[in-house]
C-alpha cells in the first residue's frame, strides 16, 4: 500500500525571470511502513521536500497524496521532527508538558495527561527529567524530547529532518537505533532526511539520492540488509559497504 505518493512535484521560489527552481519533477512513492532515507548535497532541496510532504509548503506544480488525500496543509497524521530541537521545544514548558502538547484538547485530561506524557518519556528514557526545562538538557536529550512529543501525536507518517545532524557520534548511533526500533514497533512510514551517507543506508529500506541545482532524484536503491540492524555487524556487512561505495561516487559527482 502506498503511504505517500509524490507526483511530478516542482517548486519554484519567486516569480517571472527571478524565479528559482528548487525542486524539479520529483516523483516518488513511499510504501506504508517503509523507512525511506533521502540524502543529497547541501542545497539539493531535501529539507524542502520534507516540508512539502509535511504540508508546510505547497508545490508550484504537481501534487502529493497521503492515502487518497491531497496534501495542502499540515496534519496530525504526519509528525515532524526538526533538526533544531532547541527552537522546536517550548522553552517555558517543562519537559513533560512539552510532550503533553499534542495530547491537549484530546480525550486525556488533567492528571492523566501528565501520566501519558511520562509514559512517552519512559519510552525515550527521559522520565527523570520530566520536571526540568528544555534548556537544562543536553542536545541529545532535547532531541529525545522532541521525538517523544512527535510520538504523542500518534502519527502514521514520521517526517525527520536531519534530526541527528547536530549531535555527537555516540548519541547519534543510540538515537538511530531507537528511531529504527520505534518505527518498526509502531509501524510508521518514515521519511528521513540526512546528509550522512552511512546513516541513510543504516536506517533505510530504501535510499533516494537527490542532486542539486535544481533538486531532482538522481538515484534510488533498495537496501537489502536484514533488520533489526546492528551498529557493528551491519556497518561491516559487504552489502553495506557496496551501497556506500556506489552512493559515495554519486554524491561526489562521479
Amino acid at each position: 500500500m502506498t503511504a505517500i505518493d509524490i507526483r511530478d512535484v516542482s517548486l519554484e521560489y519567486g516569480e517571472g525571470s527571478g524565479a528559482r527552481l528548487i525542486l524539479s519533477d520529483i516523483s516518488l512513492t513511499v510504501r506504508s511502513g517503509e523507512f525511506l532515507s533521502v540524502i543529497g548535497p547541501s542545497g539539493c532541496g531535501k529539507t524542502t521536500l520534507l516540508r512539502l510532504i509535511a504540508g508546510l509548503v505547497t508545490p508550484t506544480r504537481g501534487a502529493i497524496l497521503c492515502g487518497d488525500r491531497k496534501v495542502d496543509r499540515p496534519s496530525r497524521d504526519r509528525a515532524i521532527v526538526f533538526q533544531d530541537y532547541g527552537r522546536a521545544l517550548l522553552p517555558w514548558r517543562k519537559i513533560w508538558s512539552n510532550v503533553a502538547l499534542p495530547l491537549e484538547g484530546g480525550n486525556i485530561q488533567g492528571a492523566a495527561l501528565r501520566e501519558r506524557a511520562i509514559e512517552l518519556l519512559k519510552v525515550m528514557r527521559l522520565e527523570a527529567v520530566a520536571d526540568h526545562y528544555p534548556d537544562q538538557l543536553s542536545g541529545g536529550m532535547q532531541q529525545r524530547v522532541q521525538i517523544a512529543r512527535s510520538l504523542a501525536q500518534e502519527p502514521k507518517i514520521w517526517l525527520m529532518d536531519e534530526p541527528f545532524g547536530a549531535l555527537d557520534a555516540i548519541t547519534r548511533q543510540q538515537l538511530q537505533d531507537e528511531v529504527a526500533r520505534l518505527a518498526a514497533e509502531r509501524n510508521m512510514t518514515v521519511v528521513f532526511i540526512t546528509h550522512d551517507l552511512e546513516e541513510a543506508i543504516y536506517l533505510g529500506d530504501r535510499v533516494v539520492v537527490l542532486g542539486a541545482h535544481p533538486g531532482r532524484v538522481v538515484e534510488e536503491i533498495s537496501v537489502d540488509l536484514p533488520k533489526p540492524r546492528d551498529q557493528l555487524t551491519t556497518r561491516e556487512d559487504p552489502r553495506f559497504l557496496a551501497h556506500r561505495h556506489h552512493l559515495f561516487g554519486l554524491l561526489q559527482g562521479h
Binding site: A54, L56, P74, R76, L101, E104
Partner: peptide, 16 residues
C-alpha cells in the same frame, strides 16, 4: 517561526 510550524503540524486552533 519554528514554533508556528510546530503549532501548524498539530493543527492547533488560532485561539490555542
Amino acid at each position: 517561526p519554528r514554533l508556528k510550524e510546530v503549532s501548524a503540524a498539530l493543527e492547533m486552533r488560532p485561539v490555542d
